[in-house]
Design a protein around this nucleic acid. Structure first.
Lengths: 100, 100
DNA sequence: AAAACAAGTTTGTATTACAAACCGGTTTGC
DNA sequence: GCAAACCGGTTTGTAATACAAACTTGTTTT
């Protein structure tokens, strides 16, 4: 068989709940550091790290590393592509769920 | 580490796009057969089959097998638990996405 | 100087979604 | 009347991935 056409095609990168959370926060905060995201999301550090990496690899978030005194700091922000993808996702899901 | 509390906790059974599609269709049609779902969703038979099994195992859909003449027929419908879970999911996602 | 801590990253594992192969029966072609 | 194609699915094999736990690199504390 090879009858394969996707119907409800949604961006899996954003669809994942943990990342949806992260992206939503970033869409409001416009630049947040690792520890802030850690608190807000309730994720473990490990999972936050990997989800951020995945978002970065997708080109959806920008990650800049710096130092706050002697302590490393990771700042994250949505890229334009990320904002766009998020908006698109929201529209899709809203529209899909609207038609009761 | 063991600081683990889930924040955006969404029903993964329903969250999966293919199953969200199936459940949405069932919520409107109230009893649909395999071939109908196959057309509506655009899934392959194999994937439709496994997703239905998963929904059945979760107690969200009821599957009855019968014959239409000599041809087997699989009828699917949402259980009350399935309807409830779907409604809950919709509310959660809508509410989450609402707060821009 | 050793032990605890901070801020992340990497690794190991179990779950999964999807495609492809399979299967039992039925119809069609010859 | 029998082989080949078709129907309506189910099972299997595999690659991706989400999460927890272990590790790392550097910094305070004691």
């Amino acid at each position: 068989m090879k009858d394969n056409q996707p119907i409800l095609e949604v961006d899996r990168i954003i669809h994942e709940p943990a990342r949806l959370l992260i992206v939503t926060i970033l869409s409001m905060a416009e630049k947040a550091d690792f520890l802030f995201l850690l608190n807000e999301t309730g994720l473990t550090r490990g999972n936050l790290s990997t989800h951020l990496s995945k978002l970065e690899a997708a080109g959806y978030v920008n990650i800049e590393k710096s130092f706050r005194g002697k302590i490393p700091q990771t700042l994250c922000s949505l890229t334009p592509a990320g904002q766009e993808a998020f908006e698109k996702y929201r529209k899709q899901i809203n529209q899909f769920l609207k038609r009761t």
